[in-house]
Simulated assay, not measured.
Amino acid sequence: MLHRIIIYLLIGAANLLGVSTSYAEPPVLEIVACNYPPYELATPEDGLRGFDLEVVKEALSRAGYKTNFTFYPWARAYKMTTEGRAFAALSCSYKAEREHEILWTKPISSMTDIYVVRSDYTGKPVVNKFVIAEEKLAVGNVKGNYISEQWEGLGVTVDLSSSEELLMRKLLDGRVDVIPQVKENYLYYVKKKGLEGKFKIFKAEDNETSKFHLCISRKSPDAEKIRTLFDEKLGEMHEDGTYDAIHARYQ
């Protein structure tokens, strides 16, 4: 009896002090992505979910949030984010024209721009869009990644696909001649599919190696606050070695 009285007194004291006697579940943040190995994988492979996904999940967990990742074609995922139907999308590169609808976190990874052609290509080295125009090559790209302005006035045909995998199949089949690609994604795909020797790559001299970020919708509640927390926890992960440990699993 005395034991029960003590418990009741402790609960009452906690309530008077404004301390909750129950533990609320952490908020769940809905994040959308497209299948883009090794950055994010719609279907885990040997326990790997993609190094960007793992980094984002860990940083937000340290900030006190749970995460739910859902995969869509990129154009749809980005639209859901800008409309506020998803908290954020990954992985995104910075574009000034998106400032009014997106908040970017600090970089979560990097990408190296290349141009990919079939191994039987014999034209000039494809190092920029002007060579592509001169050689009259048909370009393939993914919907949502395509910036029409870069090809305007060059007379270049652009074929848009819903996924990277479909795009690579088109290149193999000769339906397109060249693909602007990310080297990290390309190497993973070729190794996974056993396509070594099927392609040539050229470093894109008209594009610098750039960064990927988590893109947070400006319409998401507490967007600024969560971005600040994310950046802080991402910095901690760099300092304590967690970030490097995640990336080491994909090498």
Rank of each mutant, 00 (worst) to 15 (best):
N145G: 06
P38A: 02
T228V: 14
F212M: 07
L187S: 12
K95P: 00
P38E: 06
A86W: 03
M1S: 15
V182M: 08
S220D: 08
H100R: 13
A86S: 12
E208F: 10
L172P: 06
V178C: 11
I114D: 00
D159R: 15
A89H: 01
N145L: 08
G12Q: 08
D113S: 11
L2H: 04
E224W: 01
N207A: 09
E99V: 09
S148R: 14
L154Q: 07
V116T: 13
D222M: 12
N185F: 02
D113C: 06
I114E: 02
L48E: 07
S217Y: 07
I11Q: 07
T105M: 00
R249L: 09
D173T: 11
L195E: 06
T67F: 11
A59N: 07
I132M: 13
F51E: 03
V176K: 04
N15V: 13
E99M: 09
P38C: 06
L48P: 03
Y186I: 01
A77R: 00
S163R: 06
M1Y: 07
D46C: 05
T105V: 05
T105W: 00
K192V: 02
L187E: 15
A133S: 15
Y36H: 03
Q150P: 04
E152L: 14
T43A: 08
D173R: 11
E25A: 15
F71D: 03
S220Y: 12
P73Y: 04
L171P: 04
E30W: 08
H247E: 12
P107Q: 02
S148A: 15
T21A: 14
N185V: 08
G241R: 09
L9P: 05
L53I: 04
L160G: 12
R62S: 08
K170F: 06
V131Y: 08
A138V: 14
K198V: 04
V32N: 07
W74D: 00
K79L: 05
I114T: 05
W104P: 02
I226A: 09
T157K: 15
M237T: 01
R62F: 10
K129C: 03
K57L: 04
I132T: 13
L29K: 09
G155A: 14
V116N: 02
V117K: 03
K143F: 08
A223Q: 10
E101R: 11
Q251E: 14
R4K: 15
V56M: 02
N185T: 07
N128S: 12
R175Y: 12
V127M: 10
Q150M: 09
F69S: 01
S161L: 12
